[in-house]
Design a protein around this nucleic acid. Sequence first.
DNA 1: TCTGGGGTCCTAGGACCC
DNA 2: TCTGGGGTCCTAGGACCC
Length: 424
Amino acid sequence: MFALVDCNNFYASCERVFNPALEQRPVVVLSNNDGCIIARSEEAKALGIEMGTPEFKCREFLREHNVAIFSSNYALYGDMSARVMTTLGELAPSIEIYSIDESFLDLTGFGRFDLEEFGRMVGKKVRQYTGIPVSIGIGPTKTLAKVANRLAKKTAGYNGICLLDSHKTIREALERTPVSGVWGIGRRWSHRLEQRGITTALGFSQVPATWVRKEMHLTGAKVQAELQGQSCLPLEEVQPSKKSICTSRSFGRNVRERDELAEAVSTFAARGAEKLRKAGSLASTVTVFAGTSPFEEPLRQYWATRTLTLLEPSQDTILLTAAADRLLDELFRPGYTYRKAGVLYSGLLPAGGSGANLSLFSETQGTRDPRHEKLMQVMDNLNRTYGRGTVRLAGESMEAWKPVQEHRSPCYTTRWSDIIEVKG
DNA sequence: TCTGGGGTCCTAGGACCC
DNA sequence: TCTGGGGTCCTAGGACCC
């Protein structure tokens, strides 16, 4: 059996933990640049506020209904997530951290234990230790645990816990779940299924397997098997190392000049290199992309991507930033209003491992330099101690893409200066 | 005026090998 | 007229997740 523990309205709940005046009040959290609504408290959902609504389209409505608005504060959410996951890790033999607000627990060996009772205990402890409310779904496969979790959230009277442990309870649950609500069935697939008259998870579980395999490939076949109670997705306790690391942003304002765009790209390249070093990875390829807003009129739209393979895999900010700048040169077209850019590192290899090929032409410019390695260590240490951006390349700048954040809450758990009034 | 960021997996098709 | 069989690697694009 698997349990899926999911934090309720996670970002909104994080804001509430440190601001009890928000209890009972509708709360929304906005995406970067205060663009869209990405989290809503129950009260906000009850007002009919949809996920993903652009803030500017509902500004009046939010004011009228006294909705508390927050810019996203990932330092806070990340830290609160770690607290929740630590708590869960102490309550179950093994845990897979699936996302910032969800974990699967392995309940193998719980035998005749009352799983519902266990779930209630878990929910109570997490609430007590962190202040975050959670919902818990339990089932014989991960996908069924997801189904159960969804019902636990949506059904009044379940008290945030739903256990699927018999043929009958599973069948009823699948009947009550729309096919679009199944984990792994997104918008496209659910639309296609609905067109064929398949509207519920139960209906999908009964479609001939050959059809599913042909039309929805291996991925769809696994979802179906899991709904039928056959576990195909194991608990992944150790997170597989990342295959790519991406740093990208939409800009807080219009960017038209190459130099300005270059500042943004350099900043993303450097931030990405920092992530590489933290992960202990080397990048083999660098991709740069940039473009206009997708809401721009068609003739004024431009979107471009360029990739290069490095002579040697690297995690060196100086080298990677130079590579990103060259790629930007190739893709930049004057005359457009750029609204987004990013840098993607892929072909990641473990640093210090034997997997990295050395360049045949090691004197060539752009290969490994031990002095740079030392410099990167020093930069990382300084930036860790005194805050990001304390030491950086001259080409980096926050200006072009400085995010709009008009409603950010204090970093209650990670930044003293946010919560202590400095006198004198 | 104003619309997020960061990932994964799978498949098809092209280039290339013997 | 008529032109094999078996494989790998890479990339782009489409689907999905939070």
